[in-house]
Nucleic acid binder design. Structure first.
Lengths: 127, 127, 127, 127
DNA sequence: GTGGTCTAGACCACT
DNA sequence: GTGGTCTAGACCACA
């Protein structure tokens, strides 16, 4: 399904959250599609089931998935949601820090903008 | 000099690093200017000197400052700098995650791009 | 008859119990009226018959219905009933927690009381 | 600090969450006051530290406490918050179910209202 | 000393 | 078989 990076400073469960988010947002995992069971995925990734469960729980908290005990974990729909301004502010703060880093790394304004553009281009499904 | 937020999930030393980076990148602290001593800054912020020490070490590691034993810590110059591609990749990965969140939050591509543009506009000094 | 919410954190059988309780207490299902058979209801709700079975057992345990082997499940009468003090204590504990949340959410005492009053007003049949 | 009920169907960490909420909302634990450390409380309650940590994390998620790694967990202030309507709806749904139970248990409308009133009276600090 | 993560392994409720 | 809880015990980063 995806690979973990043991060398990363990110914790394992965070990596799992991140990878699954990517699969969901990009549409690889579609609405109401079942995610692998906790045991399955923990087996595939060779990590402890508790670690995967923690990731699933975090995804549920953030609204990416929903859980029906005894059945499994499923991709949540994004219907009729309105933009969460508190969350938006948080994300923008992170992006602000990232852009500041680009400046410091020595990129020109244009180089930085070009880099950002490639990131948008990766999300070709996004309208 | 700046304020810390004890309620933040970010660790104290990380906040110190971030704030100092901002002051350096934005030009408030100029090349070869002396940073406050560890003791001074820890006093101002009312945090443990070890914490400030750690922040200074991290800034040095990332090339933002240099230390001259016995004299203090100074802002590093950005001349003849090579772009650190490893660091760049890391920053781009963070930005990628942030942009993905914008999509998930329900912003349109244009709304997201507009938001990013405002972040660039904040850095009016950047050429 | 009613709808289930698979995305809810409540288990399916609990939702079935709750919905049936509501129908009984509100008088839609009257004393000695027959409930749908386990098979029927499980078909309507597209859930496992065991799940409905479990819900019926729970309702029986709580005294809401009675079962006559081979004939079906029927709404129990509420005549000559003694107040179940153990159950009452449990319900009051839940209500206490709910009211505490209202306080924490920032409602004034009057706002909270007004909210509770609307909940009572919903039960216009109750004397 | 408080007692757990091993016979309860509530999970341990939920009981910890609930008891701490009560202490916070009632003002026994005041703003910015330090909660016992995870290890301390787990020792007092003779449960596993992981269980207490789960409770602390849940309290943080719900905004009751904030955490500074390396220092401890502290009671969050309720300043300048506005009422969370989504959360309010959830709490009211729970209260609605509780009130329905009172009706079913055979209480008269007046008896039920009297019971609710005693719950409000317990929160004498609430204005 | 403080919280945070992870593993191994067990048991439970629900479907 | 599915998620959820819990224990015991280890290791890490931060202050």
């Amino acid at each position: 399904m995806f690979q973990l990076d043991v060398k990363s400073r990110k914790s394992i469960y965070e990596q799992v959250v991140d990878n699954l988010k990517e699969l969901i947002v990009s549409g690889v995992l579609k609405e109401d599609e079942k995610l692998p069971s906790v045991r399955d995925l923990s087996g595939q990734l060779t990590v402890n089931p508790n670690t995967v469960q923690k990731a699933y729980r975090e995804l549920e908290r953030q609204g990416y998935v929903y859980t029906t005990s005894g059945l499994g974990t499923f991709v949540a729909g994004r219907a009729e949601q309105q933009i969460d301004t508190a969350m938006l502010a948080k994300v923008l703060a992170e992006l602000r820090a990232g852009i500041r880093e680009l400046q410091y790394l020595g990129l020109s304004r244009e180089q930085a903008m070009a880099q950002i553009k490639t990131l948008f281009d990766e999300r070709s499904d996004w309208k």
